[in-house]
């Protein structure tokens, strides 16, 4: 790692404290040549209203997605984005964003598909930085100059990304649905004449357990303590860190947050994010669903 890890005591209880930084550490480290700060938000205009000095913006829809292949960008596309953002393979990247870091966690997950060696989240994200009255700017000053030569890395999906076939073969395993309870049960509240962007069917993947993603976040947007997180995932769900987990939501963004929690804060050995999520599963032909609040059964196949 090029930039030393944040030694803050508050982070040391987590399984991989090197994956998080505090707002104070970031404030003290801004300006380092080895560091690039990335903002990634749900709202694509938030960065323009003001951002952490020197931060660059990476947008999931526009930068990380390939709408033609309905997939993430390839190695060449990612390299081009990294070069434009002033990020080399040696750069320490700290990502932050709105909504308790949903989209920041999503961007981090994509960085990891390309095996970027050192990428971390700002605990609490944009809201925590702002709440502490820290500097925000609309200026480009301090923004890293473009670099060149980021290697074309072939994306390695298998360790952290699940496809629908993987999920189909995983039913009955440690499968967690991080959407809202209403989405899980399949209740829908849309009215006639209202366009809906959602799916044909309401419900969840059979055998999935429901833990809305937000339960892992404290009110200030930071992650909950390890003890509180263990009470949810190991306690309530009975998940074991040695067994594999798959998390999903609607399009894979909220489940990236949970993926980060399970993998880096709680140290589960194998955690995958099913980014096809309900948008794919709920619409797919010949994929079974469960409706209601119970996890449901694995159908005989």
């Amino acid at each position: 790692m090029t930039v030393p890890v944040d030694p803050s005591p508050a982070l040391q209880e987590y399984a991989h404290p090197e994956k998080l930084v505090t707002t104070q550490w970031l404030a003290d480290t801004l300006g380092s040549d080895e560091l690039v700060v990335v903002e990634s938000d749900e709202d694509v205009l938030l960065y323009e209203t003001g951002h952490i000095p020197g931060a660059v913006k990476i947008d999931w829809h526009l930068d990380l997605n390939d709408p033609v292949t309905r997939d993430y960008v390839d190695g060449a596309g990612f390299a081009k984005l990294m070069d434009a953002s002033g990020i080399t393979r040696e750069t320490t990247v700290v990502i932050y964003g709105d909504k308790s870091n949903w989209w920041a966690a999503y961007a981090l997950w994509v960085f990891e598909l390309f095996g970027h060696p050192d990428v971390r989240l700002l605990d609490g994200g944009r809201a925590a930085w702002q709440a502490e009255g820290r500097e925000m700017t609309t200026s480009d000053d301090g923004r890293p100059a473009a670099t060149s030569g980021y290697p074309h890395i072939e994306r390695e999906d298998a360790p952290i990304r699940a496809y629908r076939e993987d999920v189909l073969n995983f039913l009955g395993g440690q499968l967690v649905d991080v959407r809202s309870p209403q989405e899980f049960s399949g209740e829908r509240t849309h009215m006639p004449d209202y366009p809906q962007e959602g799916t044909v069917r309401g419900g969840h993947i059979p055998t999935a357990l429901s833990v809305p993603w937000g339960r892992a976040a404290a009110e200030d947007g930071r992650f909950k303590s390890r003890e509180d997180l263990e009470a949810i995932y190991q306690g309530e769900l009975g998940f074991e860190t040695s067994a594999p987990v798959i998390a999903y939501c609607r399009i894979g963004e909220r489940s990236s947050h949970t993926w980060f929690v399970l993998k880096y804060l709680l140290g589960f050995d194998s955690v995958r994010n099913y980014d096809g999520s309900w948008t794919e599963w709920g619409n797919a032909v010949r994929l079974p669903i469960a409706v209601g609040t119970e996890p449901g059964e694995v159908a005989a196949r």
């Binding site: 694509v44 947008d59 829809h61 526009l62 709408p67 209202y194 366009p195 962007e197």
Partner: peptide, 12 residues
């Protein structure tokens, strides 16, 4: 500049 998906909101 904002993506087609986000524009769904405006259509809504």
């Amino acid at each position: 500049v904002v993506s087609l998906l986000r524009l769904n909101g405006m259509a809504g």
